[in-house]
Design a binder for these strands. Structure first.
Lengths: 211, 211
DNA sequence: CGTCAAATTGACAGGATTCAAACCCTGTGG
DNA sequence: CCACAGGGTTTGAATCCTGTCAATTTGACG
């Protein structure tokens, strides 16, 4: 979260277009870390595809707490809303380049939109299962396995989010997040290069913990 | 959950049609308690509207746990799926009468469907926030306030679900559910007529706890 | 009245949060 | 090049809460 001033400064800076595997070229907007991409209540204009970087989707509660409902990584699309307005905030977590896909006018849902919506719903459901019960160990294990899968199964995971973000995503405090990761390290399952780069040494054992 | 034998026995017994406020008459199917309405993986044929009774929507996890993702009450519509098949189970919790609304052929979504989907998504999001953090007191408070609102703000709530159901919905054990309700009673906020009928004595204090 | 399932209550242990302190990393300025 | 400051992270100790196991109570029904 950021002040209006810095939002204006960081938000929607146009950048040189970048070629994609699609034939045509699309404009890329650059977002600095913690920069708001869209806010709760804003009109939902389009979908966003992440060219590089990472994004968090969250809601603010009346008491000031924050529930992160999703992280989105390179290549993923987010911003789908059935209603006309966004019910979440979207913020860049690191420097991120986004291309936007215009939302078709009217209530029409094309295949692309339905696909994105479906994926988002399935993710949300999985997330509910993780957050609902499970110990901190299971939560962190699921979280890391999911991230590894989505980053392309290299054993080194690069975390674009802070411990606070992870806590707000899994329903844990930052201390518990940190302690749990340390425990996995002590068990010989993880190796920490630094706080934002984790190597999975025993993928099988981690998978067992995440069920 | 129930055995196949009893499912067959209880399921989809046709009953005399019942007039609704709509001009035309629709057939009502009656479902006994714990009777499966549809199962995970089944083809999604139609939506269901509850004429009387109450329904739970849940998923089964590999380790045997059950996550209830929604309760539906009289007058509500459920069964929406973006995909072709159901990703959840639906079961009646008490004797329930349902009318079904045929799903339009093809991928077309009419206003009715979009409305139901929207409501379901918003509910799921709220649910995530509740399950994510919050103490057992907050969870139970939110749960009861929500139920009171949906039953039409009478101060007496009628619970169609068991303590096990509530636990599986909020991510708590039945003991904690029971203890928490007892604590609210001891605080003078609730009065228990019996396990399935709760009176809210101090609505404001309950609302404060649920934020 | 007896039986059975559901719900309540109690005791206890384990795990998560809270509050606090120490540590690490990175960028800045001398 | 090094010292230093600041934020983010890790670790420690105490407390509180929830889950577990067990016993008891309640309510529905034959």
């Amino acid at each position: 979260m950021q002040t209006a001033a810095s939002i204006t400064m960081n938000s929607r800076i146009s950048a040189p277009p970048r070629a994609r595997n699609q034939a045509h070229i699309r404009p890329v907007t650059v977002h600095a870390p913690d920069c708001v991409i869209y806010a709760q209540g804003e009109r939902a204009r389009s979908l966003y595809q992440i060219e590089y970087g990472a994004v968090r989707i969250y809601r603010l509660l009346t008491d000031g707490r924050r529930q992160i409902v999703a992280f989105h990584l390179v290549g993923e699309t987010f911003g789908f809303e059935i209603s006309e307005t966004h019910s979440f905030y979207a913020e860049a977590m690191v420097n991120s380049g986004l291309t936007s896909i215009e939302r078709p006018a009217g209530g029409q849902l094309n295949d692309r939109l339905v696909g994105v919506a479906l994926k988002a719903m399935v993710r949300a459901q999985e997330h509910l299962l993780v957050v609902g019960r499970q110990s901190s160990l299971e939560k962190i294990a699921v979280f890391l396995m999911d991230l590894a899968d989505r980053q392309g199964s290299t054993d080194v995971i690069d975390l674009p989010m802070s411990r606070v973000d992870i806590g707000d995503y899994l329903g844990l405090t930052i201390e518990t997040v940190s302690r749990t990761i340390s425990k996995l390290r002590d068990m010989g399952i993880l190796k920490l290069h630094n706080a934002r780069s984790i190597e999975i040494l025993k993928q099988e054992r981690l998978r067992l913990m995440s069920n």
